[in-house]
Design a protein around this nucleic acid. Structure first.
Lengths: 216, 216
DNA sequence: ACGAGATGTTACTGACCAGTCACTAACCTG
DNA sequence: CAGGTTAGTGACTGGTCAGTAACATCTCGT
């Protein structure tokens, strides 16, 4: 946790580079979990599979996380953080121009889909939205996890409605919601159209048409 | 399966109506499974829970279904059949007018959302699309179940593109795909906006705007 | 009333899975 | 080098779950 221990992870002298510096167990677990949860679903991945993938063991897991659910919560929050990072990067070049920001966002979705696999920004896309998919699996009485997903989706809605307002659209809330439907539909359909030819490839064009319709 | 056994389910004379004719075990299992799978997800419902809800026992279950997976396959196909029924009913009043058919379909989605709970046609909506949600849970190596979901989504896409073509839209495939994104987004967001105020309430308006944009 | 097919009961197997325990080994820091 | 921290091992508990076996009962058409 301390700055000192962080520095210690960096080799002071060049050493046998056979295997790069092994990160802390906790981080390896998080990385493995992110990968496995995303690909196989949360209920489809057991703790043993995670620790095996992370090259560690169950005791180290439970020393780092009180329970599997706590790891899931961290996974969801990590995915959310990464998503907002990706979002902000996509819209940053057009600050002050809400319309261009939305268009850049939608184009970024298309680019993500057309990218080979996991790309630099750490965003996975081949199975759509990690948080949305989690909503299918989280039991309804799990308030903690459901709240994470709900807050995240509510923030998406809030942002898109704000863009619509900023571009002075007619009925900005309707436009914002419509854009959200496109976006969510894009993620959802990735589950069954994992190739680069699914309906999501039309999302940028559709968004432009929708915006035009609200800019009389 | 035979016509004779079907007829036997219909009482020939009026009889004690205390409890309506108890359907065959197999059908009760299917009904319970449909309800539980939809509400809690497929991996979240065990065989014991299904047979208890159906008022039967595990042996009768395995006499009627070779495995849980076979029940899941039937569940998915049942849901699909019910969905097309609902779809066809929604568009039937506007046969020959593709644009009105799409508009009626989207309005039917809104109506479904605004309906209190499960409605007459047997369509459930509070947790979105049963088939789409299943796609989150089905392991990638389960070709049989994945094929069911894929074919279903491909048919949605095919139909919407056909409507777009029939209404002589510009770039009909793009319009069809855009409509599909709206539709799928509507289902997906139902998971996290289960009330009647989610983005899906804007779907009919959004669809009209999109169609307009393709009808210059 | 009878037989056959449909259904129920109980108990079981084997696999999986979350979480724990006692103990050991490596490593960093002072 | 001492003592704390971090990580690894293997065995274990208690629970869940899919699927099966043997046997008992019910129902319905004839």
């Amino acid at each position: 946790m301390s700055a000192k221990s962080m520095a210690a992870a960096v080799p002071l002298v060049s050493e046998a580079p056979a295997r790069s510096e092994k990160p802390r167990v906790r981080d390896r677990i998080r990385d493995s979990a992110a990968d496995l949860f995303y690909r196989h679903g949360i209920r489809g991945v057991c703790v043993d599979a995670i620790v095996e993938d992370a090259g560690t063991n169950k005791m180290s897991f439970y020393r780092a996380f009180p329970s599997k659910d706590d790891l899931v919560a961290e996974y969801l929050k990590d995915q959310e953080r990464g998503y907002w990072q990706w979002w902000d990067d996509a819209v940053a070049p057009h600050a002050g121009d809400a319309r261009r920001q939305v268009e850049a966002l939608m184009q970024a979705v298309v680019d993500l889909v057309k990218a080979k696999a996991k790309n630099d920004c750490g965003c996975r896309s081949s199975r759509g939205c990690a948080l949305g998919n989690a909503a299918v699996e989280i039991p309804e009485d799990n308030d903690k996890l459901n709240a994470i997903v709900h807050d995240y989706k509510a923030e998406i809605r809030r942002r898109l409605r704000r863009y619509a307002r900023e571009m002075s659209a007619r009925e900005p809330d309707s436009l914002g919601d419509a854009l959200m439907l496109l976006l969510e539909g894009g993620y959802y359909t990735r589950l069954t159209f994992p190739n680069n030819s699914g309906p999501v490839t039309s999302i940028a064009k559709a968004a432009r048409a929708l915006i035009d319709a609200h800019m009389s």
